[in-house]
Design a protein around this nucleic acid. Structure first.
Lengths: 236, 236
DNA sequence: CGCTTAATTGAACATACTCAAAATTTGTGG
DNA sequence: CCACAAATTTTGAGTATGTTCAATTAAGCG
């Protein structure tokens, strides 16, 4: 499954807008890329499992990955969906503890791999990277805490609307400007909102009937983003 | 409300076991303490509000503080309860954004205040503190994500049991070894678990009848911790 | 000691879940 | 490219868990 050295993606080409490494200089990025690996993951393939010990850092060159936790009765909760230039598993790596969530490719993805050693070397030598990492963590913590409040206090309808808005914000739309540039199963949308598949279907169906969104199989078009935003009851 | 310079608590006496500053040397702690303030907060008094801009870092010398977010309909979600030597508001400070939660003293507390400038000076000069902060954030993120899964997938009974176990873990018991060393209202316990006050009361009452806990007003005794642990369905 | 806040109990109700069965889509091998 | 199997989506009906609202009792506080 490993790609050849020839088509190895280049760190300098990586579009890591808000990622940890966005602060690095071209030179540092070159150093970063020296001994990295790159793997291809087919849709549905698992990158790492909850409980595994991390030995390095994953960085998505191209593709989409869901990070999920398994509850007691086999129910899945999607913690977040990562896309281009996002890093995976750095939280566990930093804490030096086993992964607390499972990462699964939700589309065919090329994912780079950086050794633990290299990452920590960089972190210890580069104070800016360190402060950047702090900011990234702090922002994710904020998001996670907000999500906690949302999920306890919002209705299913609000949560589903919020998930749709989040997806639009993170992955944007296809060239038509309204179709979400990510295709999830109803189950996955439900697993993001903490809702059963059936209720998710019914809720999406309602929004469809109200012509706030338009459903075409796995393609979802956001027809009235303002209204959806209002339904989602987003404060920030 | 400010205490006099005379009884100003000493950073070196502060029992910050797992706090950010636990890695600092005695000398660094002395530097830390040079220009800090110390305030007394009466039970119920607010330390900072959601939306305020942080100008420094709070550190609890003695007392207990709840960190909570207000939902749309005025419903409160307690994100965490902080105790001796815990820092408050460092996440917002690090992100340089307004507080996303409100901090309220739940018992009379002495809380130190460290200027933003001083904190960032330390952070930039002391790489160990930096790495320590990363670890602290990473651990809190893990906890927050776990809480998210819990709250979506666990029943009220499981969540209430978990809250009780968490309180025991964090604040311990009185000398008798069974009475929780923290007194919360039923509403606050419910706000931690994401449950209404009435349901909280009924659930606690059930556990009381089953003699797993013993309720005496605001004092809660954990009679059968093993059984409570089993009910809570805790994995970690 | 009176007044405000918190705790408790009951009954009605609603939201979202469960289970089951059918229709549709998707993926795969020939 | 088609056919078949597997997975996903959809719909319906019944149900449970936890909420809401209202009323009462108890506790804390100045």
């Amino acid at each position: 499954m490993k790609s050849s050295k020839l088509d190895m993606p280049n760190c300098e080409d990586c579009q890591n807008k808000g990622g940890v490494f966005s602060c690095l200089s071209k030179q540092d990025k070159a150093i970063l890329g020296e001994d990295k690996g790159n793997n291809f993951y087919k849709k549905g393939q698992v990158i790492f499992y909850e409980g595994n010990h991390p030995h390095g850092l994953y960085c998505i060159f191209n593709g989409k990955v869901k990070i999920s936790k398994l509850g007691d009765e086999g129910k899945e909760q999607i913690v977040r969906i990562s896309g281009n230039a996002d890093t995976l598993g750095y939280r566990s790596l930093l804490c030096n503890e086993p992964y607390k969530a499972t990462a699964t490719a939700i589309e065919d993805s090329y994912i780079c791999y950086l050794s633990k050693k290299k990452f920590f070397e960089l972190l210890e030598s580069n104070n800016t990277l360190c402060l950047n990492t702090i900011q990234l963590l702090a922002r994710e913590l904020r998001q996670s805490e907000q999500q906690l409040v949302d999920i306890t206090q919002k209705s299913v309808r609000e949560r589903i609307a919020e998930v749709l808005m989040q997806l639009k914000g993170k992955f944007g739309t296809k060239p038509d400007g309204i179709t979400l540039d990510i295709r999830l199963t109803r189950r996955e949308i439900g697993d993001m909102a903490g809702v059963t598949t059936e209720t998710t279907i019914r809720t999406l169906s309602d929004l469809n009937k109200e012509e706030i969104i338009h459903i075409n199989g796995k393609d979802i078009q956001i027809l009235k983003p303002d209204q959806l935003h209002r339904i989602a009851n987003i404060e920030d």
